[in-house]
Amino acid sequence: MTGLVPMTGLVFWAELGIKMAVAAAAVPAIGMVIGYAEMKLSAHMQSRVGPYFAGGRYGWAQLIADGVKFIQKEDIIPAEADRPVFKWAPALVMLGTMALLVVIPLHPSRYGMVRDLDVGIFYALAVSSVSTIGVLMAGWSSANKYSMIGGLRAAGQLIAYELPLVLATVGVVIQAGTMSMQGIVQAQVAQSWPFMLTQFVGLAIFMTAALAELTRLPFDMPIAESELVMGYVTEYSGFRFLFFFLAEFANMFSMSAIAVTLFLGGYGFWGIPTDTLLSPLIVFAKVGILVFIMIWLRWTLPRFREDQLQTLAWKWLIPISIVNIIVTAVLKVVV
């Protein structure tokens, strides 16, 4: 029986600690940047100014002030709530979020991502589904009908859109011939055009399903303010609310980063060598474009109805993505 060799070395533990610290620090950092962008962009789209005073100019410190405010707040747990489940639900949502950040490639070297798994994209899809349990836990344990309905809506929605999300990536995996995130980027760099050109159907389905998985407009029925107060987050306040809040923005980043890796060529860009320090900036720029589109859609489109949401997933997105897989597989063999 061979031992778990790397586990005994101090280097292994030091490396693991650094990686975990980076992943843990990335979530609030990303959350603040995207949260600020959302505030400012939504304000300008509605002819408002948005955050203005915090930090002196442009309200850049607004999210830091918000964070400090959330941490200071009292940790309120409803009297009728199921305490352990209520307390652990935000942690589980955060777990799915942090685990997703691990496989995003920023640079071709081994320091460019936390871990290049052989089943990279499959891992990403698997861990992102863990958050659903957290959402259901939050909805049930709050002992509140709004929370409960929000949780149920979220679960129904996440089940429906997980399928197109997974199926949309299959075309890319067939074309690249690998599930490793680095491998997919390298395949696109090698052929010098992104998979977006051949897998545009996959990209459209992936981004639609990602919006639904993030429960953002036009798919935000689980937290529809006008119907459900705030859905499954209604009873949360202070630090635990902050977890849901940050997880949403960090998930926007990771979903966009996965889309960038799969469809937009990751850190590859024409004429720029991939092994420079520009690589992470290229990824962030591409992610920025996708995140901007998400914010733009949120402040442009009205909310779908629940039945329209389910119809879109089951009757349109899933059949189209299966056809996409068949066509890709046939072309892969023929061409």
Partner: peptide
């Protein structure tokens, strides 16, 4: 596969059904 299918789908359906 265990995480995606069982935790992400089957248990979610369990909880959904119970709730």
């Amino acid at each position: 596969v265990l995480v995606l299918v069982y935790i992400g789908a089957v248990i979610v359906l369990f909880l959904f059904g119970i709730m």
